[in-house]
Design a binder for these strands. Sequence first.
DNA 1: AGCTTAATGCAACTTGGTTACTTTTGCCTG
DNA 2: CAGGCAAAAGTAACCAAGTTGCATTAAGCT
Lengths: 142, 142
Amino acid sequence: MPSPDRLSQTLTRHGLRQTTVRRAVLQVLSESSYALSGGEIEQLLPPNTDRITLYRTLKSFEECGLIHRVIDTSDVVRYAACSIECSAKAHFDNHVHFKCTACEHIYCLNQVAIPAVTLPAKFEAVTRDYLLAGVCRECQPA
Amino acid sequence: MPSPDRLSQTLTRHGLRQTTVRRAVLQVLSESSYALSGGEIEQLLPPNTDRITLYRTLKSFEECGLIHRVIDTSDVVRYAACSIECSAKAHFDNHVHFKCTACEHIYCLNQVAIPAVTLPAKFEAVTRDYLLAGVCRECQPA
DNA sequence: AGCTTAATGCAACTTGGTTACTTTTGCCTG
DNA sequence: CAGGCAAAAGTAACCAAGTTGCATTAAGCT
């Protein structure tokens, strides 16, 4: 639960102007324990927040490395706040993601690093994404 | 390049009826060296092939384990033919995928297995997906 | 305060995919 | 090799996610 102060600081640190929508979007994303789609973010924002502005906000957040897309097999894009400082070019988003098949949430498992693989010759990997699916802690049968 | 025979056999083996569209879709997918989106498949099919039928075909193929969705950060779903026999429940799709940032294609690296990770307590993984991004063999600068 | 540029808000549109319903066709059985 | 039934195709209309163009507003620098 970051203070408004902290949110503003994060924006300036990434060279972004202060606006109401941006602070709101950043707050929603950094308070969520799982990745959110555009539609989900929209519902968590104050009513009547403009959808187009939201998508543009997500785009600029992504471009400056404030948030990252989370891989998924579904047809909607989900976003999560970057936990450590990423830049537009290099996302140091080196942890695995976990998708719960019960609650459908995708969590960042910050403590679990993505293991390396050896690629065939002439393939050069720049980014790596690892997604596990199963049943999360909350949805486990007691 | 599987013969029509082989395609028909694959369909029956998975308990699917023989239809023109199904054979065509299966052929397109098994001949492609990279994962295809619904729209891309549509363009590779004979003209005037019904879009809805295509999506239904993809759905049933997926359900019976003939094809699998490939994870991605984009907002379109991409499919690839399963190389070995998968069932609806258990996809033995244990290889990493590679997305080329130049040609945008996603390849199955069948020879590269997904390394295991140790999860925090109470997380149970059922499926695992690993996506690398970078420049593929064909797009490497000479 | 005033200016410049970036961000917002609005309308209209595109793309990917789905639902409901009717018609056709695969394929099993007698 | 009918003939019938269920599954698949076809058609139309719809829905949701995301985008584009343009006019308006507001951030933040001097």
